[in-house]
Computed example of a mutant assay.
Amino acid sequence: MTLKAASKSIAQPRTKVTNSKLKNILNNYELYLFLLPALLYFLIFHYGAMYGVLIAFKNYIPTLGIMGSPWVGFEHFERFFNSFKFWDLIRNTLGLSALQLIFGFPLPIIIALLLNQFMHTRYKKFIQTVIYAPHFISVVVLVGMMYVFFSHNGLINNLIVILGGDPVAFFTRPEWFQPLYIGSGIWQETGWAAIIYLAALAGVSPELHEAAVMDGANKFQRILHVDLPSILPTAVILLVLSVGNIMNIGFEKAYLMQTPLNLPTAEIIPTYVYKTGLQQAQYSFAAAVGLFNAVINLILLSTVNRIAKRLSGTGLW
């Protein structure tokens, strides 16, 4: 077979595949039209906005624009790495995210497993409503509630005084920032996060539980050997996503909870970017810090996904 004939024979299957894909798109164009708004959103506001990353490598001057501003390379990154705040920001951000992951990630799984074993439907729905409700409280209202409960004359300090103790300045002592942040996050999001696991548990075949009962397994053994393996792929995916987002801890609540006295533990990268970028108008420096934060997230996401894929066979890609 000549080279020309070989290339022609290879091109024919590719043409058939392309024509088949085009035919499939035309036959289902209504579905693709439904996807179009979402695709445009991501293209414009996510991928298109990445053009602005250039200011991290420039000395951005608004009157000159992005392309007209002078190029400075990695100057802003070096300034951030050499800053006296660098290690404090890394320690605060990673410490807060890691503690939130350690204490917050297993609880929705435990709640879902317990609710799945609840046989009384009426009480089960009541409990679900109670633990889901905090998710719909806005961050501003949540922090306001925390100030009411944990302020110097708040409910918690009044109880401490009644029990013979001294009032605790929760919002001015740096060591209390992380417990308050993590505890309020667990209270607000645990019930809502359990919905995904409850949906996964709803897909478990009853025949598996019947077989386990026939073999003499009790409830704990059925949870351990039937329910947990069934939701493991879902848990792995959510764990990978959580680790990949570990540096993007919530800005709003951290910023609202900050006081001048708790900044040694309350200042994290997102709040630092806001203060330097918007309040101090250091746009290029703030963009460099934000880009560094995003790169760390990407590395963590890729690493954890590869480890999870190798250990459990489940991953994002």
Score class of each variant (00 low, 15 high):
106 P>V: 00
135 H>Y: 14
117 Q>E: 15
78 E>G: 15
59 N>E: 14
168 V>W: 05
116 N>Y: 00
50 M>I: 12
165 G>H: 03
160 I>D: 06
52 G>F: 04
108 P>S: 08
108 P>H: 09
116 N>K: 02
95 G>H: 03
94 L>K: 07
117 Q>N: 14
159 L>E: 05
173 R>P: 08
55 I>T: 04
161 V>N: 02
160 I>R: 01
112 A>C: 09
133 A>M: 12
55 I>E: 00
113 L>H: 01
103 F>C: 06
57 F>A: 11
96 L>I: 11
132 Y>M: 13
91 R>V: 07
138 S>R: 00
147 Y>L: 13
108 P>M: 10
135 H>P: 07
59 N>I: 02
147 Y>N: 11
167 P>C: 02
132 Y>N: 12
63 T>I: 09
133 A>Y: 10
48 G>Q: 04
170 F>E: 08
59 N>W: 09
148 V>K: 12
128 Q>H: 04
94 L>D: 00
153 N>A: 13
57 F>M: 11
78 E>M: 15
124 K>T: 03
170 F>G: 06
98 A>E: 04
100 Q>Y: 12
127 I>Y: 11
155 L>G: 04
56 A>K: 04
117 Q>Y: 06
128 Q>D: 09
63 T>Y: 07
131 I>R: 01
119 M>H: 15
112 A>M: 08
165 G>A: 03
73 G>K: 06
90 I>M: 14
66 I>E: 00
109 I>K: 03
102 I>P: 04
106 P>D: 09
109 I>F: 04
137 I>V: 11
67 M>L: 14
136 F>G: 04
108 P>T: 07
135 H>N: 09
148 V>A: 14
98 A>Y: 12
156 I>R: 01
173 R>I: 13
70 P>A: 05
72 V>W: 03
50 M>G: 06
147 Y>F: 11
106 P>W: 06
81 F>K: 04
123 Y>Q: 13
53 V>Q: 10
168 V>S: 07
83 S>T: 02
104 G>V: 01
84 F>T: 15
106 P>H: 05
64 L>K: 13
90 I>D: 03
56 A>T: 00
92 N>F: 05
79 R>V: 13
102 I>W: 02
106 P>G: 00
72 V>N: 07
116 N>T: 01
164 G>M: 02
74 F>N: 11
120 H>T: 14
